[in-house]
């Protein structure tokens, strides 16, 4: 009773969100789970087949290839798209002229405004061995022979990682900046009183104070890594497919192209379980709950 009186209003505030998630996330999720245990034909009866779909997926070597690709590419993206925006945000924060800061922030954000289809299309063009800008520079400035970046299996994963970082760094950077902005200015004042240099202020005040934001960003990035899809879908081609086809690409292929909705659904639940496990690890390691 006491609890209700003290926290009642909070539960009321939470209620619409919970209701929404129940209808638009959990109910479909349970339905999807059901599909993964069925021989899900498009029409007619859909008999239950136990764990057949799951074992089919587990015995598919393509699934395991996709798993390796996902972990390598996802891990790379997790690392780079955490570090790069952090460096940029700190660098932006040190810029003294407001106009430059404003413009830089704005321009760095532009790639995030574009969908992967557009970004992919632009980069396929820029990296083209025939007339792409990157190769033009290689040929004319460094006198190298043109290189077909997107058709070379050894480069493929790096390109996926770097392009994802490039596209999203302005966006994550904003999170860090917003975090920096809300740092209590008196902390800097105190540091300066102690004669701290800019570098020392950065190490002693900014970074520790950004801890919360860093945890959130890291957790959010973790949630995303197993679900990479659009980027690969746009940038892949048959010569690099074996190096870059990720788990969601696998489910797409199973579900939409092969029309095997049961196994596709089972594969998605593997992704879900894996994400769950990863998140638990990250939460434990970052002690997120104590934030």
């Amino acid at each position: 009773m006491k609890v209700l009186k003290r926290y009642g209003a909070l539960y009321v505030m939470m209620a619409p969100v919970i209701a929404y998630f129940l209808v638009f996330a959990y109910y479909p999720l349970v339905k999807g789970l059901q599909t993964s245990f069925q021989n899900y034909r498009l029409m007619g009866d859909r008999p239950y087949v136990g764990f057949t779909n799951y074992s089919d997926v587990l015995h598919d070597s393509t699934f395991w290839d996709a798993m390796v690709n996902t972990l390598v590419i996802g891990g790379g993206i997790l690392l780079f798209s955490f570090a790069a925006p952090l460096v940029i945000a700190l660098s932006l924060n040190e810029v003294l002229r407001t106009w430059y800061k404003k413009i830089a922030q704005m321009i760095l954000y532009v790639p995030h405004l574009l969908s992967w289809v557009v970004v992919g299309g632009i980069w396929i063009f820029l990296l083209s061995p025939d007339s792409g800008l990157v190769n033009m520079v290689l040929v004319h400035v460094f006198h190298r022979t043109p290189f077909n970046f997107l058709a070379d299996a050894s480069w493929a994963r790096w390109i996926m990682i770097l392009l994802a970082t490039w596209k999203e760094m302005g966006y994550t950077c904003i999170l860090f900046l917003a975090g920096i902005v809300s740092i209590n200015p008196s902390l800097y004042e105190a540091a300066r009183m102690d004669g701290a240099t800019r570098w020392q202020q950065l190490i002693r005040v900014t970074l520790p104070q950004l801890g919360n934001t860093m945890k959130v960003v890291f957790l959010l990035n973790t949630l995303g890594i197993l679900r990479i899809f659009d980027e690969v879908f746009v940038l892949r081609n048959p010569t690099i497919a074996t190096k870059v086809d990720v788990l969601m690409m696998y489910t797409f292929q199973k579900g939409i192209l092969d029309i095997k909705l049961g196994p596709a659904s089972a594969a998605s639940f593997f992704v879900l379980l894996l994400t769950l496990a990863l998140t638990l690890v990250v939460r434990r390691v970052t002690r997120f709950d104590e934030v």
């Binding site: 058709a151 048959p238 010569t239």
Partner: peptide
């Protein structure tokens, strides 16, 4: 075929492009 096509294309294109 969807699975086979991936394999065929992968090696055929590598051979054609001289890799």
């Amino acid at each position: 075929w969807e699975d086979a096509e991936k394999i065929v294309k992968n090696y055929a294109l590598k051979a054609m492009s001289g890799q």
